[in-house]
Amino acid sequence: MNPIQEYFFRIDEPERSTLLFLRKKILESDTENITETLSFGLPFFKFKKKMLCYLYYSKKHQKHYISFYHGDRLDYPELLSEGRKKFKILLINENEDLPVEFILNLINQVKRLIK
């Protein structure tokens, strides 16, 4: 198992399945330009080798989240900055439907900001 797979398999269900599904959707959204790396022990997604987003766990909220680079330029009430300068987070509730279209829309907006 590679380190990225190990990261996900340390997470309990149902969170693991939710994050693996989200990971798959992000990677499939742009197979030529989005890559996955492990940075700081976290799965990072990069667009043309530049930061795009990453997955992590919030101890404060007791939930996993996806954090978007250039989040400071995204204006959505669902996104929390919580003192971050360049990133905003979207909390993931594994007991609700995952807002896949919204997440992919945010990723596309960040991709445009990177170019």
Rank of each mutant, 00 (worst) to 15 (best):
Asp75Cys: 01
Leu79Val: 12
Leu80Pro: 07
Leu19Ala: 03
Phe40Gly: 15
Gln109Glu: 14
Lys86Pro: 02
Glu96Pro: 14
Asn93His: 13
Asp30Gln: 08
Leu42Arg: 15
Glu36Gln: 15
Gln109His: 13
Gly83Tyr: 04
Phe40Leu: 14
Asn33Lys: 12
Lys49Ser: 13
His70Gly: 01
Lys60Phe: 12
Leu52Pro: 12
Ile4Cys: 01
Leu27Glu: 12
Ser58Tyr: 06
Lys24Tyr: 10
Lys49Pro: 03
Arg73Gly: 10
Lys111Trp: 03
Asp12Pro: 04
Met51Gly: 13
Ile92Pro: 02
Lys50Asp: 06
Glu15Ala: 15
Pro14Phe: 04
Ser39Gln: 14
Lys24Ile: 03
Leu113Ala: 13
Ile34Asn: 07
Leu74Arg: 00
Ser39Trp: 12
Lys59Val: 02
Pro14Cys: 01
Leu91Pro: 04
Glu94Pro: 15
Gly41Met: 04
Ser58Arg: 06
Ile103Asn: 08
Gln109Val: 10
Tyr65Pro: 02
Lys25Ala: 11
Phe68Cys: 12
Gly71Asp: 09
Leu98Met: 14
Phe21Pro: 04
Ile114Tyr: 09
Lys59Gln: 06
Ile103Pro: 07
Gly71Met: 06
Gln109Lys: 15
Phe9Thr: 11
Glu28Gln: 14
Glu82Pro: 00
Leu90Ser: 00
Asp30Cys: 12
Ile89Cys: 01
Asn2Arg: 10
Cys53Gln: 07
Leu42Lys: 15
Asp75Arg: 05
